[in-house]
């Protein structure tokens, strides 16, 4: 069975600017910059593309030897940050490369936690 994830639906907002995505986690008070292939992977996960389908499609299109490991590592980081979680709602969505970068670059997640004290209710 394929592995599928979905975006945490409570308080995770994101915007794709093409070469970078901005993600905000309202519950944790963290925010993130997604660059390289990260925006594309994030959007694919949002569209219910399975991890296996995503890995295979990226490896095939870009011929990048580290692609599968990079995708796995990036997804693990997203899970650790509680931005995505596994879902049992499986679909057969395919990777849509119309918005994918022309060249492969390692998906990067930069994590920022310096504004946690701004979250309402964080200080009582």
């Amino acid at each position: 069975m394929s592995t599928q994830y979905e975006i945490a639906n409570e308080g995770v907002y994101s915007e794709n600017f093409g070469d970078e995505s901005v993600v905000v986690n309202m519950k944790a008070g963290n925010y993130y910059s997604l660059t390289g292939m990260a925006s594309y992977i994030w959007d694919s996960l949002s569209a219910h593309v399975s991890v296996e389908a995503l890995e295979n499609a990226i490896a095939k299109r870009y011929h990048a030897p580290t692609a599968k490991a990079d995708v796995r590592h990036f997804i693990k980081e997203l899970v650790n940050e509680k931005l995505i979680h596994p879902t049992l709602n499986h679909s057969n969505a395919d990777s849509d490369f119309s918005l994918a970068p022309a060249a492969y670059s390692v998906p990067l997640l930069r994590v920022f936690k310096d504004l946690q004290e701004y979250v309402i209710g964080s200080v009582s």
Partner: peptide, 16 residues
Amino acid sequence: AHALFCMAPSTLFLLN
């Protein structure tokens, strides 16, 4: 993206 990165988190967190 960088402008949103600088503007959105503090705005959103302070106002929930």
